[in-house]
Amino acid sequence: MECEKAQKLISDWLDGKLSRWKEKKLNKHLASCQLCQDYLEAQKIIQREALEIGKVENPSQWWLQFEQGIRKKLSLAGQPDEIQIAGEEKNNKKTKWWNLHPQAVRAISILTIVVGTLFLILYIGQRKNSEELPLSLMLSYEESYFNLSQILAQDEVAASDFATNLEETILEEIFLAGGEDTIWEVEYNYPLNNYQIESNDLRIENKYSEESL
């Protein structure tokens, strides 16, 4: 096992997220890798100290004042939708339609990419060879996708692993290309309603969600 992969497993282990068989693999690697042993020890220290440094104790009087502040603002407002929150005026700008329909935007984007890619493959392929794609080649692709979809449909574990690996690869590519920072430079506004998690769904567009509270 490569050290990079082992260190990813160490991270999952620290978060209590490592399966038994992966833990076994990690232990096997650790037994023969001083570098990863040191990495593990360093991460244990970071974990322990990070937990401690964010702990703040406030006296009970402080909490009373904190609650009174909230109560006062709520009483003044009367009804939930009359609450005014400082610094929110700027956020009341008109929401763009693409922010209101993230699913539609995603569908259109994927469709555009797929159609565009197919068009380029066929067009360039034809221009280059002045021939159509061999039928046998197209059928073999189709068969591969069909087989894969059959396997994933029948085996939940395989489907989950496939989705996770695919997702991590994509995210790593995005990160290496500096995309993660770019994505997060928008207004942070995760959807607060109707949220359903799907493990094989990247949901990157959630960062651009429409609902502003």
């Binding site: 990813k8 620290l14 978060d15 989705a163 997702e167 991590e168 990160f175 998690i197 799907e198 990247l202």
Partner: peptide, 17 residues
């Protein structure tokens, strides 16, 4: 909370560490 997948959280934790 973050509106992303568990895989994303796992990967971000690894990178953050």
């Amino acid at each position: 909370v973050l509106g992303c997948s568990e895989g994303t959280v796992s990967w971000r934790m690894h990178e953050a560490r």
